[in-house]
Nucleic acid binder design. Structure first.
Lengths: 198, 198
DNA sequence: TCCAAATCTAGAACGTGTTTCAATATCATA
DNA sequence: TATGATATTGAAACACGTTCTAGATTTGGA
């Protein structure tokens, strides 16, 4: 038994199963969105029994929100190191939002699946949701303050970041449900950021 | 055939059926929330066949979003006439939000059902969603400007109203999914309004 | 190495949103 | 009023999330 490949608990075989499940989830979501992530299909593709899938993730929502967390981790790792370009908080925040929105547009089905799961999550998924919220907050706060650390994040910064996150979620909701366009998302964010960071 | 009881199309019997369906929907939602609004139960309570229910409303989401629109109409009628108290836009907006949030808290199950439907609605419900959005926008714009009509709603007013609506939806989402408290909703709104109307 | 406990598998089964269909009822009009 | 079109009914059937069960298989400790 080699060890320490991950911090996830369980035996090697279990970590492997978990990875296969999340990979299958992302692949199915990327192809067909929320509806295509069917529990029987995930189990089949991941080569586990349906009961096992439910042992690892107690519901489709848990499964998708966990997958969202993993995606967020990867995106954050990519962006954390780099300095955010832009001379003002406004410019930097819009840059981060722009880059992210562009990335989401490239995998619209996946975005739809993960966003819907996030919206539908109830109290039993509070931990995972909180996790995702923290990562988003960290990303935006980092953008407001810049990497040069000229100032500490103030309480006001945090409040602004929360409002931006809310507007973003609403905009994403409109987009993934097909009621608005991706350009509308950018437009909404631009207006909100202009109002908040002035 | 007496006429002109409503602007809704169809025969008297059809308008009656439609009303019974929406009444049953609201009653079930008020008692047990989103999950309790089961299509078979709605059909039974409204004394129509399941197929008839689907002829009137093509999905559970359409049904609930239409019910939401009806509730909004009633709330709007109540508030439209009255002058919104408060000397500043901030005070007036917070008053409207406070009154509405209090009302929603009194029927948490109903709020949960209608909010969830709103969040889940896809493009096929765009018209109904747009309708609800317009009503909310009108209410908030009215509050910002006051009844005394000292000024026209500016483009900025409209942008602010949209952002407030977004924050409100996010806050409601957290509350109806049991992840945050009703007090958190008020707090979120207060912070957002303070940031936007300064 | 052997055994008990934990885990995994295959598959059936249940609940609820949605679809479908044949039979019946209602309506609008000639 | 008769008749064809339209609406309603009742019931069955399907899809997918979820639960449950009985029998392998794996695992970890004596």
């Amino acid at each position: 038994m080699t060890s320490a490949t991950e911090t996830t608990p369980g035996s090697n075989a279990q970590r492997e199963r978990r990875r296969r499940i999340l990979d299958a989830t992302i692949a199915l979501a990327d192809e067909g969105g929320f509806d295509a992530v069917q529990m029987r299909a995930v189990a089949d593709d991941a080569d586990v029994a349906l009961g096992t899938l439910y042992r690892y993730f107690p519901s489709k929502i848990h499964l998708l929100v966990t997958a969202l967390g993993r995606q967020f981790d990867r995106a954050e790792q990519q962006s954390r190191s780099r300095q955010v370009p832009g001379d003002t908080p406004h410019e930097r925040v819009m840059h981060v939002l722009g880059v992210t929105t562009t990335a989401l547009q490239k995998q619209p089905k996946l975005t739809e699946a993960l966003t819907r799961a996030f919206m539908f999550a109830d109290a039993s998924v509070a931990d995972e949701i909180h996790d995702v919220g923290m990562k988003l907050t960290a990303m935006l706060t980092h953008a407001i303050d810049g990497t040069d650390q000229t100032r500490e994040p103030t309480e006001e910064d945090e409040a602004i970041v929360r409002v931006i996150g809310d507007v973003w979620l609403s905009a994403l909701m409109g987009w993934v449900t097909g009621r608005t366009s991706a350009a509308d998302v950018t437009r909404s964010m631009d207006v909100a950021v202009r109002l908040l960071l002035r």
